[in-house]
Design a protein around this nucleic acid. Structure first.
Length: 418
RNA sequence: CGGGGUGUGGCGCAGUUGGCUAGCGCGCGUCGUUCGGGACGACGAGGUCGCCGGUUCAAGUCCGGCCACCCCGACCA
């Protein structure tokens, strides 16, 4: 994409009404637009990051046997009354509205009820199981106070997957596989070293749920981490008995702040019983379907990545999620330079490398500053200076070393880096 | 939902004890000079000062109500 054509531009000023690093930088760099408190639009660059993250998750969920679909945002009141969660005193994040005829509807803040209800249409026998389904949905949650930019919005993108199985054994196997798949996801988006499996409250259904917590000061959770065992316990469930049960020693735990980027938990048969989702087993006995739920906050993940890697010059995207691999800069008004830059842009693009081409008529400093602010992994400069050697200057966002390379070598470096 | 703070061109801000055509920086347009880390000159466009009401000869400025945004707390299956 040529920057002369890209919709949105960067700003020299930080937004005054944001304090979180992720929102400040993402707005300043033109990735997102704030509609209101806790509600952000994703502009072309931001959408690209979201889509890159989604694609990684999609691949991992598909490898588990997950099938993608999409539910609706409008949900029926009756559905939620079955599990006693329509009442505002039970669930305080509801956005509710009414149809023209007065029928009450809710805007989905979660979809497990809805999907489980739907499953009654398609599951009646053990032959129909297991079923693993997932979606990327915009969740609506009427938080009393939103904060931390896109890390905690009132409207946000979430991947939620649900497993429907015949037995606890099958369920547990899938659950464990999902833990591994989640590790892959966080590894691939660049957060592998900072993200830890964490024991958390299991709610009404099981003793524990599992969270994936990424270490960052911007997080809202406090976890107790055993780095050598790569395990953590959420502060909310930390007791002597729990530590004993998990084989962890209090003296080896450090208290750290973290952001919850994923959460998985088991419902057993309880939710199915509430909603009436039963299947007939081989012997003809009716039994509740075993349900598991697996979430990843996609837009939150984007915010966490921004928080974790940004430096004093701006955003720094890991290769796998960056909106482009390279930021190509042409310097000076020499037509030879423009022509060489055009050609390089063309050949890189044809090689399948996503390039942001800064073909604007600006001075060097402004282009460099924008390249840094936008956080594109590689920067390529074409100028009189580089052309005298028939080469281009390549530099990584994360260090100051530059090297002069020809087109093929640049393609090689960029091609190998993602 | 309790406590505190802030609303002035697209963005960031200033605006004395109420007083004249409401300023500044960035950005934007035209022209010229520049051109490897956010250049410079000239000219120019752009604002019902969050909204409603009140006090006053006169309100961006004072008073009341409302709305929005931010921070702290509570909340976060």
């Amino acid at each position: 994409m040529r920057l002369t054509e890209l919709f949105t531009k960067t700003s020299k000023n930080l937004p005054a009404d944001e304090t979180s690093k992720n929102a400040q930088l993402l707005i300043q760099a033109g990735y997102i637009y704030k509609e209101m408190a806790g509600v952000y639009a994703f502009l072309p660059l931001g959408l690209k990051v979201i889509e890159n993250i989604k694609q990684i998750i999609r691949e991992e969920m598909n490898s588990l046997g997950g099938q993608e679909f999409i539910m609706t945002t409008l949900q029926r009141k009756e559905l939620w009354e079955k599990t006693n969660r329509w009442d505002d005193r039970k669930v305080d994040v509801w956005f509710k509205s009414k149809l023209k005829n007065g029928t009450e509807v809710g805007l989905g803040w979660s979809h497990e009820e809805q999907i489980t209800e739907m499953m009654k249409n398609y599951i009646s026998s053990y032959r129909d199981l297991p079923a693993y389904v997932y979606q990327f949905q915009t969740k609506m949650r009427n938080e009393k106070r939103s904060k931390s930019g896109i890390m905690r919005g009132r409207e946000f993108v979430m991947k939620d997957m649900y497993s429907y199985t015949t037995s606890d054994t099958t369920h547990q196997k899938f659950y464990d596989q999902t833990i591994e798949a989640y590790k892959q996801v966080f590894e691939r988006v660049g957060l592998g070293k900072k993200t830890y499996l964490t024991f958390a409250s299991g709610g009404d259904f099981t003793q524990f749920s599992h969270e994936f917590q990424t270490l960052t000061e911007a997080g809202e959770d406090v976890i107790y981490l055993d780095k050598s065992k790569k395990l953590a316990v959420n502060k909310e469930v930390l007791t002597t008995e729990v530590l004993e049960q998990l084989g962890l020693k209090r003296s080896e735990l450090q208290e750290v702040k973290a952001a919850e980027v994923g959460n998985i938990f088991s419902f057993g048969g309880t939710k199915s019983e509430q909603l009436g989702l039963y299947f007939d087993d081989e012997a003809g006995h009716s039994r509740p379907v075993i349900l598991g739920s697996y979430g990843i906050g996609v837009s939150r993940l984007m915010g966490v990545i921004a928080e974790c890697f940004a430096d004093d010059k701006g955003l720094v995207w890991p290769q796998a999620v960056a909106p482009a691999q390279a930021y190509l800069i042409s310097l000076g008004d020499d037509s030879k330079v423009a022509k060489a830059a055009d050609e390089l842009y063309k050949s890189l693009t044809e090689a399948g490398i996503a390039v942001l081409y800064d073909d604007r008529d600006l001075r060097a400093g402004e282009k460099f500053a924008d390249a840094d602010l936008m956080g594109i992994p590689w920067r390529i400069v074409v100028s009189d200076k580089t052309l005298t050697q028939h080469k281009y200057e390549l530099k990584a966002r994360t260090n100051d070393q530059t090297q002069l390379l020809g087109t093929e070598d640049i393609q090689k470096v960029l091609g190998n880096s993602h």
